[in-house]
């Protein structure tokens, strides 16, 4: 651990920095999401030195997964503050051995938690073949430009992930909860 050499009042920040280093955090952002920000984040992540060394397939999976998750916040995320139209959320990307771990979080109305949890549990139990046929089924039956994006999006992400999702919900207040999702994407040759 680094020895503090002065300015101890700022020690808390230095601890955060060291924790980010130890956890091999490649990118993080917390704030309000919109499409322009999604574009910028995709550009930044694609130019990370770790990603530049990866195969086309790894880069493609990373990009698709980030776009899907962040557009999901833009479209379906909700602010826990009354009347706010902002889409607050957090994205954290880290590398652990040969895989990339993407953690995504946002708030949503608590009454939607049950259905979302049920859907994730259903997708989590599926094999690759199950996911493939479920994707086709949802694609064929959904309406053009209907509100199907979240369903198809989650299946898409599940197909690119190395294994099922880890997730959690935590109540923020009477109406809203925080939803977090962890996705693992394999690095080269995995």
């Amino acid at each position: 651990m680094t020895k503090l050499m002065g300015g101890e009042a700022h020690g808390g920040f230095i601890n955060w920095y060291e924790s980010l280093q130890q956890n091999n955090i490649l990118f993080m952002f917390k704030g309000d999401f919109n499409q322009e920000l999604v574009n910028s984040i995709v550009q930044v992540i694609n130019s990370l030195s770790d990603l530049l060394e990866e195969d086309v397939l790894v880069k493609s999976r990373m990009t698709s997964t980030i776009i899907e998750c962040l557009q999901n916040i833009c479209r379906h995320g909700e602010s826990a503050e009354d009347g706010s139209l902002l889409k607050p959320g957090i994205i954290l990307l880290r590398k652990k051995e040969d895989e990339y771990i993407l953690d995504i979080g946002n708030s949503l109305v608590t009454k939607k938690v049950g259905a979302l949890q049920e859907y994730i549990d259903k997708v989590n139990k599926m094999t690759d073949e199950d996911l493939k046929s479920f994707h086709k089924e949802v694609l064929v039956k959904t309406e053009l430009f209907g509100k199907f994006g979240a369903d198809l999006g989650l299946i898409n992400v599940a197909r690119k992930a190395k294994r099922g999702f880890k997730y959690g919900f935590k109540e923020i207040n009477d109406l809203y909860s925080f939803f977090s999702l962890e996705i693992a994407i394999s690095g080269n040759g995995q």
Binding site: S64, I67, E68, L139, V140, T142, F148, L152, G153, N156
Partner: peptide, 14 residues
Amino acid sequence: LDYFNSSSYKPFLD
């Protein structure tokens, strides 16, 4: 295509 999102699948299918 370099990549496309889930919302683009349906217009492509159409």
